[in-house]
Amino acid sequence: MKLRFLGKNSKQGDCPTLYATDRDTYLVQGWKIFANDLLTQLDIPVGQTAVEVPTELFEFLTEDGLPIGEIRRLEDPIMVLTPSGTFVVQGLEVTDSEALAEMEIPDYETVVEVPKAAITALLEEPREADLQRRAQPAL
């Protein structure tokens, strides 16, 4: 897998990062999720995992030729918008040793792979069902 660096959200040592691949996917490097209250909200299939990243990380999608990087809809693979203003992104856990060797991944982070089409679909204006879901208070 070949990687192309799109951007990094560096704040005081934190480094969620976004890459494009030659497989029509994005790699999203983010914080591992340890909070039990957050984990209970997720239904993560075997072979997948989830990471938490700042919403601003997706602004780097413009580096991949997209007109905007603002996520406008919440659905798979972005599972949750947390109260602290971060996204939880679910995808295949990256195990490709060559790709991982190109990244700097602290122990408290991991990387997920998600289809480009799934991410770019979330840049579209929300549909009515999305607006209704956002209007309901979180449990």
Rank of each mutant, 00 (worst) to 15 (best):
N36I: 13
V28Y: 04
Q29E: 14
T17C: 10
L27W: 01
Y26M: 06
A20M: 07
P16L: 11
F34R: 04
D14M: 13
D43R: 14
G30P: 02
D37P: 00
L38S: 12
Q29A: 10
D24I: 00
F34V: 10
L38V: 11
Q41F: 05
Y26G: 10
L18G: 06
P16M: 12
L27T: 04
Q12R: 11
L18M: 12
W31P: 00
F34E: 10
P16E: 07
Q29S: 07
T40Y: 02
R23C: 02
D14P: 00
T21E: 04
G30L: 14
W31K: 07
Q29C: 08
F34I: 07
D14S: 14
L27G: 05
K11R: 15
L38P: 11
K32S: 05
L38M: 09
L39H: 03
T40F: 01
T25K: 02
A20E: 15
C15P: 00
T17M: 11
T17A: 13
G30V: 07
D37A: 12
Q29H: 13
L38G: 09
A20W: 09
K11T: 09
V28G: 02
C15V: 02
N36Y: 05
A35G: 01
G30N: 08
G30M: 14
A35H: 02
Q29I: 06
V28Q: 03
Y26T: 06
T17K: 13
T17Q: 14
T17Y: 09
C15F: 00
L42M: 13
Y19H: 13
L27K: 04
D37R: 10
A35L: 03
Q29W: 08
W31E: 13
D22Q: 03
D24N: 05
W31A: 07
W31S: 08
D24R: 07
T21V: 03
A35T: 05
T40C: 01
Q29M: 13
K11Q: 15
V28N: 04
Y19I: 06
L42I: 09
R23F: 01
A20L: 07
L18I: 08
C15M: 15
I33H: 01
G13L: 10
L39W: 01
P16N: 04
C15E: 02
Y19Q: 09
T21Y: 04
A20F: 08
L39M: 01
F34C: 05
L27E: 00
W31R: 12
L42N: 03
R23A: 00
K11M: 15
K32W: 01
L27Q: 03
Y19M: 09
G13F: 06
D24C: 00
A20H: 13
T40P: 00
L18D: 12
K11W: 11
A20G: 12
F34H: 09
N36E: 11
P16K: 09
V28L: 04
Y26P: 08
K32I: 14
L42H: 14
P16V: 08
Y19N: 10
T25P: 00
N36R: 06
D14R: 11
G30I: 06
